[in-house]
């Protein structure tokens, strides 16, 4: 039932391809990814940091497609460059959080008993610790190593600082978000594993004498993938916004660089004075998330072993 090898994946892919919403979402995501990562290489995309205060807050025009911000910077290019940061954070930081959360939750749920109690009380403690205090402490510790690392990368690769720094300064952010974001996922995976491990096929695997690690990773985890996908796609928006909060506290994106979260915050503040600064970043942000969530639902449906009979 589980170990059908490649045919399971082929089935899943087949089902996904028939899900119109999922395929459309995939298309939207591809377009946004291309725009953000390939777009800035195009000659017609302006510098996101060039200031022209005489032309601040201008409306969309042929020169500035999305208009300009409060310092006269081109909003279109700021949205694209900001997208790089947000998408990277959404992908990498969420990935780190999910990886930690799945392994931790699976081990706790499968082990049960005292170990489970201990591990979950640890999660409780982390959950209740004041988040802001941790962030402030972390940014205190991480500042210098991050700067040294940036210098080292520049030294080794010989790439210009303008290209290296925006990426390397994000590393502390990935660590911080990954370290905080895994808690809920761990809880969910644990609960799912606990219910799955009582099912017959696990007992069968145990009686066959398979090792515990093998049972956990080959037999139990594939059965909790549905909820994990749903939680992951649900967690991405929160994590992307967490980035803007952390950046505001000095951890992560440094001005004049930006991200969707930061652009949206700036736009929301200026909402009453004209909504375009809010509209364009929100459009990209919301489209990405809608697409991601519909794709997540499609993936869940496709990977659901039971839905094969539908």
């Amino acid at each position: 039932m589980i170990d059908k090898g490649s045919s399971l994946w082929a089935d899943a892919w087949h089902r996904l391809a028939h899900n119109r919403a999922a395929i459309a979402s995939l298309g939207v995501l591809t377009v946004i990814l291309l725009l953000c990562f390939i777009g800035p290489l195009m000659p017609f995309v302006k510098s996101p940091t060039a200031i022209n205060m005489a032309n601040a807050n201008s409306a969309p025009s042929v020169v500035h497609w999305f208009g300009t911000d409060q310092l006269g910077r081109d909003l279109f290019s700021r949205v694209l460059y900001g997208g790089q940061v947000s998408l990277l954070v959404g992908l990498v930081a969420t990935g780190v959080a999910v990886l930690i959360g799945v392994i931790y939750g699976a081990v706790a749920g499968y082990a049960g008993g005292k170990l489970d109690d201990l591990m979950m009380r640890f999660v409780d403690i982390l959950f209740a610790l004041p988040f802001l205090v941790l962030v402030i402490l972390f940014s205190l510790v991480v500042d210098e190593p991050a700067a040294d690392f940036t210098d080292w990368v520049i030294h080794v690769t010989g790439i210009g600082r303008d290209h290296v720094a925006p990426i390397t300064t994000l590393i502390p952010l990935f660590i911080a978000i990954g370290a905080i974001g895994w808690l809920t996922i761990a809880r969910i995976v644990r609960a799912q594993v606990m219910s799955v491990k009582k099912q017959e096929f696990v007992e069968a695997a145990v009686s066959l004498g398979l090792s515990r690690t093998r049972i956990l990773f080959r037999h139990i985890l594939p059965n909790v993938i549905g909820p994990v996908i749903i939680y992951t796609t649900l967690a991405v928006p929160g994590i992307m916004l967490l980035e803007s909060v952390l950046s505001f506290l000095g951890l992560g994106v440094k001005p004049p660089n930006s991200s969707w979260g930061i652009l949206i915050k700036e736009g929301a503040d200026r909402m009453e004075a004209g909504g375009l600064l809010l509209f364009f970043p929100s459009l990209f942000f919301a489209s990405t998330l809608f697409a991601l969530n519909f794709l997540g639902d499609g993936l869940r449906d496709a990977l659901d072993p039971k839905s094969a009979n539908d």
Binding site: I51, K254, P255
Partner: peptide, 29 residues
């Protein structure tokens, strides 16, 4: 403060050829 600092950053880059960074700290720090 961030907007102001970005303006200075650009003015110094354009007029003097100097690159400065902006360091954002929470108020107490």
């Amino acid at each position: 403060a961030a907007t102001q600092a970005q303006a200075l950053q650009a003015m110094w880059r354009d007029q003097l050829g100097i690159e400065v960074e902006i360091e954002n700290k929470e108020w107490n720090a």
